[in-house]
Design a binder for these strands. Structure first.
Lengths: 206, 206
DNA sequence: TAGATTGTTAATCGATTAACAATC
DNA sequence: TAGATTGTTAATCGATTAACAATC
């Protein structure tokens, strides 16, 4: 059941291109080239051209790419030319940091609800959010047709919360807990475990 | 200047294997197989055997792998059979979450110092840490021969802080800021940008 | 022994790079 | 025009998988 014949590894680089193009635009640049973009990202210009060619033709020979135009196209391709509502589960230290993070809104995401299972936390505030009971979560997500969740709960709670999210119709989960979760086909998941990244690097540190 | 002929992509999976083996051990399991491990991780058994074979022979035909033995070997390979001192730069919400995170210590890492550039934060406490002035950072890192840093500063400060870390002799940086940093050869860097992960997933969400 | 699983080889598959015609 | 850069093709490179002898 293929949903797209674009290699997943290519899709994963598009957000990086978009981020760098947005930065270039903020610097006041108007035009760039695959070479310049590649240099800033540590990627070959050939790879950038090949990746972009999967989606269409966005440049001009001899000139390069119009930065704002290309960025718009990439936003459309990634479907972040809209604002996705996201629920956050877990209102510990990490949940607080995620809830307060200002970097989501102008990149396509808006946290709309924050949940926790701990009765002592429910009702408390994080910025403008009131922490809500997970017991209400499945209903809320279904009613509001929310498709994306961020998971900032302890590892021991991650699978049971994930099962609830899946039941509610969530299609994409960003998991901060250091665990491998079981999810059905069709639901996307991405993991953030800083320790995996540190351990990857220590291999190379003398 | 090759430091190892082990493919980087293989090195990146070893921490994942280690994490799952640690979880299995916590469940009281003693023996596993490449098939079982692969099933839990969503990776083929052939790939796991091939990856491990890059480093040695750790299993027994007909039996599988002793979980604690294999975990020990992987810790040694990744050099997390020791405790690495890590400095954290940035004491905002995210810095607080990272500083308070309890998941580093038993996986090879210990935050020893927390820095910020904001004079109003310096001297304040995060748990047992006292937030210190970045002005003292380069000296501290050199004196204590610290090799690893975590960066939780705003994007606009990330490059200048990175330059300081590199000057101080830091060899590995885990960067939470959504930027591409310039670093010299020989310094390792890994990035955590949750928005890149979300945008990767929205491509596939109908 | 019979059954199971490793470690490894060879085949397959997929990703990256080099090169260049097209063309702005 | 002359110079530059795209989009694409073909070649190269690297990673994954299938298969199986070895052996516990």
């Amino acid at each position: 059941m293929v949903r797209s014949n674009i290699p997943n590894i290519v899709v994963g680089r598009i957000p990086l291109y978009l981020r760098e193009l947005t930065e270039m635009a903020a610097e006041g640049k108007v035009i760039t080239s695959s070479q310049e973009l590649g240099q800033r990202l540590g990627i070959s210009s050939a790879q950038i051209r090949k990746d972009l060619s999967q989606f269409g033709e966005f440049g001009k020979q001899g000139t390069g790419y119009n930065i704002t135009f290309l960025a718009e196209q990439l936003r459309r391709i990634l479907k972040v030319d809209r604002l996705w509502s996201v629920v956050l589960v877990g209102a510990g230290d990490l949940g607080h940091a995620v809830a307060n993070y200002g970097g989501f809104i102008d990149r396509g995401f808006r946290i709309t609800r924050v949940y926790d299972i701990d009765p002592s936390k429910i009702g408390q505030k994080i910025g403008t959010f009131t922490i809500q009971d997970v017991a209400a979560m499945v209903d809320d997500i279904q009613k509001e047709r929310i498709k994306i969740a961020m998971l900032a709960v302890p590892a021991s709670d991650a699978q049971s919360v994930t099962d609830m999210l899946v039941e509610a119709g969530i299609q994409a989960i960003l998991c901060y807990a250091p665990v491998s979760l079981k999810i059905p086909d069709g639901v996307k998941i991405q993991y953030i475990d800083p320790v995996l990244r540190l351990q990857h690097m220590t291999f190379y540190v003398p």
